[in-house]
Simulated scan of single mutants.
Amino acid sequence: MKDKWQGLRCRFINSNPVGPWDDFILSEWELEACAWEDFHPHTETNFVLEGELHIESEGETVILRPGDSARVNPGRIGRYWAPVYARMVTIYGPNPDGVESHSFRYSEI
């Protein structure tokens, strides 16, 4: 992702979200002065480790700081942005049907 989206880094820890999965998937994300948007068919819970993360979904926006968490419900678009920097652990819920995430949008702030 680093070559295409300079301010976004992701590392999947226990599995790669490809095809169907019945367990959770754990990943670590870093955003540096950028925004990321996508649609995902599974739940997505973000736990902020460092910085400040903004999340918008279903017309509601929350601002998370270290120790805070928020969930984007399945079948929704989530927009995530860090005005300066954010590092978080993300948990994807099961996706037994294997529907892929889509509608990816990236922008720099």
Rank of each mutant, 00 (worst) to 15 (best):
M1Q: 09
W5K: 11
Q6F: 09
Q6T: 13
C10A: 08
R11K: 14
F12M: 06
I13P: 03
I13L: 14
N14K: 06
N14S: 15
N16Q: 12
P17R: 01
W21H: 13
D22G: 15
D23C: 12
S27R: 12
S27M: 10
S27F: 06
E28R: 07
L31D: 03
L31H: 02
L31Y: 07
E32P: 08
A33Q: 09
A33S: 14
W36L: 13
W36A: 14
P41V: 02
P41R: 05
P41T: 02
T43S: 13
E44A: 05
F47E: 09
F47Q: 10
V48M: 02
L49P: 13
E50M: 04
G51F: 01
G51I: 01
G51T: 02
L53G: 00
H54Y: 04
I55M: 06
S57H: 08
S57K: 01
E58R: 07
G59N: 00
G59D: 00
I63R: 09
I63L: 14
R65D: 07
R65I: 11
G67R: 01
G67D: 02
G67E: 03
D68R: 01
S69N: 14
S69M: 09
N73P: 14
P74M: 00
G75F: 00
I77G: 01
G78P: 00
Y80W: 10
Y80V: 03
W81H: 09
P83G: 13
P83Q: 10
V84D: 15
A86H: 00
M88A: 13
M88Q: 07
V89G: 11
T90C: 06
T90F: 12
T90N: 03
T90A: 15
T90G: 04
I91V: 15
Y92S: 04
P96F: 03
G98N: 03
G98T: 04
V99K: 08
V99A: 10
E100F: 08
E100I: 03
S101Q: 15
S101T: 11
S103A: 05
S103K: 05
S103P: 05
S107V: 05
S107C: 05
E108N: 06
